[in-house]
Nucleic acid binder design. Sequence first.
RNA 1: GCCAAAUUAGUUCAGUGGUAGAACAAGGCACUCGUAAUGCUUAGAUGUAAGUUCGAUUCUUACAUUUGGCACCA
Length: 584
Amino acid sequence: MLNIKENEDLSKLNHSCAHLLAQAVKHLYPHAKFWVGPVIEEGFYYDIDLGEDVIKEEDLPKIEKEMKKISKDGKRIVRHELTKEEALEMFKDDKYKLDLISRMDENEVVISCYTQGDFTDLCRGPHVDTVKELKYFKLLKVSGAYWKADSNNKMLQRIYGICFRSEEDLNNHLKELEDQKNRDHRKIGKELDIFFMNDLVGKGLPMYLPNGYIIWEQLENYIKMKERKLGYQHVLTPPLGNVELYKTSGHWEHYQENMFPKMEVEGEEFVLRPMNCPHHMMIYANSIHSYRDLPIRIGEIARDCRFEASGALKGIERTRSFCQNDAHLFVTPEQIESEFSSVVNLILESYRELNITNYHFELSLRDPEDKVKYHKDDKMWDMAEDTLRRVLNNLGISYVEKIGEAAFYGPKLDVQVKPAVGNEITISTCQLDFCLPAKFNLTYVDKDGSKKTPVVLHRAVFGSIDRFIAYYLEETKGALPLWLSPVQINIIPVNNDYHLDYANEILNKLRENDIRTELDMREEKLGYKIREAQTRKIPYTLVLGNNERDNNTVTYRKYGEESTTTIETDKFIEMINNQIKEYK
RNA sequence: GCCAAAUUAGUUCAGUGGUAGAACAAGGCACUCGUAAUGCUUAGAUGUAAGUUCGAUUCUUACAUUUGGCACCA
C-alpha cells in the first residue's frame, strides 16, 4: 500500500487538501471550529468541532462538491508569518487554535498561517501554490475522534480523505482499497468455512469450524516442534485462577478493568486468566533450581480471556477468548543476550518458512522521564535496552525504537504487521521482565550458594494463534500453503461409473500417508467440480480417468494454474510428502 | 466504552406503507460428462421488542449484533 506520508509531494498535496476540506466545511457549517488536519499514511484527515451538528457519510458528496467549487475558483495559497501575539489575536475566538498557539515557543518555531480566498488556517506548511492543484481527491470516511486523543475529552468529528496528482492515480488507489477488503480475514474466514461467531454464544468469541481447526492444529504442532528443538518444555495450566494469584503478580491492581469480573464459589474468588505468566511463575516455583538448570523454558498453547472493549473486537484478530503461543524463559542475567537472540532467530526462521515478508520490528523502550509508569531501576533499564539493541544489531535486523512503549516491567521487541483493514497489529513479541520473578519470590541457587532472582523473557512467536491465522489468511488471500490447507488434495473421477474404484484406491493411499484428501463423487460435470476446487483454494486437484487408471498414474492441477501434469502415483505422493515436510 | 452506519433465505444482493425478488448453495428429476458454472424442478428469509398506522420488512424508539473510525490493546 502507498504511504502518502513518505512522499514529499503527496504529503504537501494531501495536507493542502485538508485545508480545502476545512474551507468547504466552513462554508457549509459556518460555526465549525477546527483542531488539526495532518497528513497520514492513508491520506489526510481533519478534526472538526461542529457543536450540535453531525456530518454523516451521506454528507460527504456535498462537501466534496463544495471543495471542487473552491478548487475551480483557483485562489492562491498565501503564507504569512506572525508573532505569537499576532497569532493569539488573530485566532482569539477559536479555542482550539488558541490551545495550539499557546503551547508554541516563539523562539523555537516560526508561527505561520496560510490563506486561500476567504479561509485562513494556522499552519506550519508547506502547501501547494494554489487550490487549483487540488483536483483529484476523495473523502473516504467520517468518524468520531477524541480531542487530543484523550477519551476524557470531547469527541470531535474526523473526516478522512485522500488526494492525488491525477485521476488515474486516484482511481487506482480506490481500486486498491476495494481489493484490500477482499482479503479481509473475516470475508475469507466465512468463504472457506474457517470460523464463525454466534450471538447466543457471545460476541468476540470465535468458534473454529473443522477447516479452521486443522489450520490451528498445524500451527500448534509446528511451533511446539520448533520450541522443543530449542529445549522448551510444554505444560498445561488452567484457564482461570484465584484472584490472589493476580494480586501477587500486580495484574489485579493494574489491569482489572480488562479482565472478566471475578466469580465467587464456596468463598473462593476466581478470574478467567488474561495471561499466563502467573501460572508459569508457579510452575517455576514448584521446585528449587540451580544456576545449572537455567535457562528453563516453559511453553504453553494457552487459552486466555480478556474483557476487550466491544468497539475493539475484530474477527479473530481481536477477541475476548484467544489462545497464546506463550512461553516464559527463566534465565540468569548473563543468559539474557543468548536467549533473546535465540527467540529472535526463532521468529525469523518461522517467518521465513511461512514465507511472511510484510512485517517490521519495533523496539519498545521506556520513557526515562516517566517515573510513574516504569519500574524504577535506571541501571537495569539501561542494561536491558542495550542488550536488546546489541542483539538486534548483531543479527543485522533493522528496527524502529519507540520511546515510552515499553511494558512497565521491561523493554520489549514487537513484530508489527498491517492487516487488510485497520491499524497495525502486533504478531510476535518478546519482553524482558525484571519484576514478576521478584514478586513471586522466584530464586535459583547460584555458584556461590546464594539465592538469586532469575530474569524472565515473555515471548510469543505466533502471538495469539487466532490473530496469527487472521493475519496469515490475509497475507495468503486464503490460498494457504499445502501443509496448512484444510483439504490438501481433491480427487475428481472423470466418470463415477468407471473410475470410482481407482479414485477410492488413490484416496486411501493418500489418507494412509496422512495427506488430507477429499473425493468429489457428486454427479456433476468435471468443469463444475474443477471450478469449485479452485474457489475453495485447494492446493492440488487430481483428475482420474481411463488414462490414469490404466497406467497407475494421477493427473494433477495446482491451485491457480491451468496446466496439468501426469505422473506415477508413488512419485506424486513422494512429491506431496516432501512439500509438506518443507512447509511449502 | 465513544461517534456514525448497517442488519432481508445457508451465502451474496434486489425491493416495497398493502401477497418480499434473484443468483449461488441445499433437496428432487433428467443428463454420464477429460480441467472454472448442464437443464428442469422443490423448499427456504425481513435481528429482537415496543410504538405510529386500517395495515409496518419499509416510518419512530429501544435493545442486540456487525461494519468504519476514536479510545484501549498488560
